[in-house]
Design a protein around this nucleic acid. Structure first.
Lengths: 139, 139
DNA sequence: CGGGATCCTAGGAGATACTG
DNA sequence: CAGTATCTCCTAGGATCCCG
């Protein structure tokens, strides 16, 4: 029997559409692009400089996906040299707050996460995973 | 007046810590694991069945990352066969709401996204970028 | 049952060169 | 300027086997 992913938001189902939408925005660059465009309409080169570390390829790819999903509007001005401006659509603007909630959480709990990492890394998690494992005597 | 990245969450900087924390939770499986553990403490096998489509490797990897960052607690009971239970830490529980905001958005705007995709795909964006590009060699 | 170790491959992702 | 095409490298991720 097929699943009824449309009548219930069962994100635990692999073929659930909401999971696909989630994957769409839960990638490395999308939040940053949304974040950047929230401020203002921006051109390709501006985004490239604003989002440190992103490559042209990834920026193009991310923008295309966002455009395809109706979150970003792409406007091309037929001038030379070409001018292309990106802005959030009304739908895209509804994503601003959820993204903010997420990034705010990241920033707010940064110290706790960093501390947890340190503690975890200091603790012994080497459960017989080295080649010297056979020397380990687990009582 | 701009501030430095210490006093402001300048997520646009590549080396900004908040971006790394963001990457931590903005992956494909983390939201689903948080979502599942929100309901109740769960064992490894339960999670594996609950989260449709995840592999053992990815589940293990995701759980380890979450544990390392202090979001999930792992409890091993020394019995045979082994019983391992995962639950959200207090820190992890603070992530529940942000995740919910995100998944709720995904579900709420699912129709609009789907419609945007259809519209986009119907429009002509084929600028010799598909594998049909080999047809260009018309001679 | 709950993983770890290994092998293997498709896609992620950077660098470069080219074009309108 | 704003991309696209191509090449390449690398990692994410599945499949399988194994062990405590």
């Amino acid at each position: 029997m097929e699943t009824t992913q449309q009548t219930s938001p069962d994100i635990f189902q692999a073929n659930c559409l909401s999971r696909q939408v989630l994957r769409l925005i839960a990638d490395q660059w999308t939040p940053l692009v949304i974040y950047a465009l929230e401020e203002d309409t921006m051109r390709f080169g501006q985004l490239l400089k604003r989002i440190d570390g992103i490559s042209k390829k990834m920026l193009t790819q991310t923008l295309r996906a966002l455009e395809r999903n109706g979150l970003v509007q792409r406007v091309v001005y037929p001038v030379v040299p070409p001018v292309v401006e990106y802005s959030l659509t009304p739908l895209g603007q509804t994503l601003v707050e959820p993204i903010h909630v997420l990034t705010d959480w990241a920033y707010a709990h940064l110290p706790e996460v960093a501390h947890a990492q340190t503690t975890y890394d200091q603790h012994d998690h080497t459960q017989i995973q080295e080649e010297t494992a056979f020397l380990v005597q687990q009582r």
